[in-house]
Design a protein around this nucleic acid. Sequence first.
DNA 1: TGTGAAAAATCTGTAAT
DNA 2: ATTACAGATTTTTCACA
Lengths: 163, 163
Amino acid sequence: MTAETPARGDGRGRAGLPDGPARLDDVDARLVAALREDGRATLATLAGVTGLSQSAVQARVRKLEARGVVTGYRAVVDPAALGLPLTAFVEIRPFDQAQEDDAPERVRSLPGVEACYSVAGEANYMLMVRVASPQALEELLGEIRREARVSTRSTIVLQTYFE
Amino acid sequence: MTAETPARGDGRGRAGLPDGPARLDDVDARLVAALREDGRATLATLAGVTGLSQSAVQARVRKLEARGVVTGYRAVVDPAALGLPLTAFVEIRPFDQAQEDDAPERVRSLPGVEACYSVAGEANYMLMVRVASPQALEELLGEIRREARVSTRSTIVLQTYFE
DNA sequence: TGTGAAAAATCTGTAAT
DNA sequence: ATTACAGATTTTTCACA
């Protein structure tokens, strides 16, 4: 073999689309599913799930990581056990629409802000926050408003059925 | 040792509260933080982080798992790579408030529904869904409405800053 | 709880098919 | 992709403070 072997096509998938998912085949899909269920599954386990050899599984998992399909591994922790039993969704929109729109950066470092999305709708952004108490939520909302100069509209989570 | 050794108090924490978080000490907190960042961190790494021996760390991690503080380990997967680039929040409320309120169970099995919360506010429940396209969202919303007999109000996610 | 050490299992890299 | 093998790491278990 003298020249490089292009893995699949030109790395762009279909007609000029920015490097796409590069479609997962059946085996990859099963690996991903298994790793989503148990991020610590051993190669032996994954080999069993897919019917492939351990070596083949290892190579595939590495590729999935390298391709950015699997971006990491995390322990799932009960928020209540961390002292943050209260979850809320917070929609925010700027007081003054002329101001600079850097809300995501501004709220990122506030403790308790777990996620930030820009959304289409009445609000500009949607946050998910976890706090210790209603009082803590009140304080956090104040920080959010002040830090990002926005108004907030909160939806309190009463119960999490699954996530 | 003849009788069982109660781990801490009576297992209820403070005055009759239903078995609480059992407060994490400093070391546990660091372990949890490390495992949230890297769910595959080795005992050696965790020992380094905490200054404890591997055995001690292992015992603590086991207890955190047994206590339900750490509920599992998951690979983090790029939704786009799975062919689900479109995220949305869907608020739902029943058409007829007299009907049985089993929406969470009904939507649980619908593919693409990633989370379900009951909420305080105008809606009864908030869902987070991931789908392949606007068309797929339309179809999923139809299924949700039909399956759980609810009306929906959706907020499309344009960009995920962090989660 | 904790430590330390030995045994068992797992991962990694390489090579031949 | 598969099998096989060796060396390094990691996990597990156990004796003991």
